[in-house]
Amino acid sequence: MTGNSAIAEAAIRAGCQCYFGYPITPQNELTEYMAANLSRRKGCSFIQAESEISAINMVYGASVVGARAMTSSSSPGISLKQEGISYLAACELPAVIVNMSRGGPGLGSIVAAQSDYFQSTRGGGHGDYRTIVLAPSSVQELADLTHKAFDLSDKYKIPTLILGDGILGQMMEPVEFHYEAPAELLVRPDGLRGAKGRPSKIIKTFTSDPAQLEELNWSLFRRYELIKKQETACETFMVDDAKLIVVAFGIAARIARGAIKTVRAEGLKVGLMRPITLWPYPSEKIQELAKGVKQYLVFELNMGQMIEDVQLSLAGQGEVSFYGRPGGVIPTPSEVARVISRLYYQKGLK
């Protein structure tokens, strides 16, 4: 199954009731899968919207009434959705947004890239807010994290992003789904369903009282602290005896893993730290690793974005180098292995 289809199937099984999307490469298989499979399900709704802006606002409307809703796009389309994501965050409404990112800036290319890291992990739109950002690195993980995205989003009332890329979306791998779609539609109890037997409710963000808005910001950030404590996730590979640790996420981590196997065969002690949540960032794990390992190589398919989070996490407790390829250029594992090996010798680790 392709990654894009796996996300769609996992979303349906997670009880996604509404999907609204707009065509953009490289994520069209996701929209098409929903058109074929979600639209036929009882009570479910699929709309090919007139724009990405409309799609995210339809998601907002569906979330307002308590439905599980999702949209997907790729980089330029995700930029258009930022207005809606900011409103979702402000109104404390759950929603799942998938970005199968591509090269930028501008229209860029349709090839995989990771240049939307800053946009994804710093909120993305206007105002002080964050979204949970999940970064899968295989088709199986795309499916698993899609299900998790819906649960996290509902649990913390926060829009949740799945940050993939064109390769993950297009590649085919075996995938196992661990859930069946729920028999009944899942309706959040706090959704607006009409003021029957209760006072009317308002979902809004605008206020003319700065103190009220300050309190909203404080309450959001208190929740963000809770998410940091409870939901930060990462994976490590061969770090126990490592002298150098590569930090990479998503498809780059997959490439790095192959490179590490190559240099390990040559006797270099190199490990991998792969953040699964990009926000919240697994800073504590890096701090823990920094007690033993001082050399870090950040590898990203961009000009260096996540490296800032690694540097912030290390706070001077280690040395950070960078290897990045922007614009949709994908280095092979052997190219990355050469970079690792050169750095290893330069730093006198052998």
Partner: peptide
């Protein structure tokens, strides 16, 4: 029950709400 819309997006928000409910 009322839910604020972003500027100009009312018809899209209403669409999502009505389709879901």
């Amino acid at each position: 029950d009322m839910a604020e819309s972003a500027h100009g997006r009312g018809a899209a928000v209403a669409t999502g709400a009505k389709r879901a409910f």
